[in-house]
């Protein structure tokens, strides 16, 4: 299945985002992402493809910042 991955950073925010998405019916998986970005280790979410607009609408009010991850 195609997936999108977003980088969140801290595990607390990744889990908070996962729970918020689950309440909205979106199943996400927390992943530790490799440290190749400029900041080092990060956690992120693996999401079903095509849900990014909905995800943005859910995470914005919670002040959960993220960026796209390119594997």
């Amino acid at each position: 299945m195609l997936t999108d991955i977003i980088v969140i950073g801290s595990i607390t925010y990744a889990l908070k985002a996962k729970n918020a998405l689950r309440e909205a019916g979106i199943r996400a998986r927390v992943r530790k992402l490799d440290g190749s970005n400029r900041r080092g280790c990060s956690y992120g979410l693996e999401l079903p493809a095509g849900q990014l607009l909905t995800v943005a609408a859910i995470l914005r009010p919670l002040n959960i910042g993220y960026e796209m991850y390119n594997e």
């Binding site: 801290s10 900041r39 080092g40």
Partner: peptide, 17 residues
């Protein structure tokens, strides 16, 4: 160590990290 943003010498600026 805080587990995130590990390449920076500074502690993360967000809570709770």
């Amino acid at each position: 160590g805080s587990g995130a943003h590990s390449l920076s010498p500074e502690m993360p600026d967000y809570l709770p990290d």
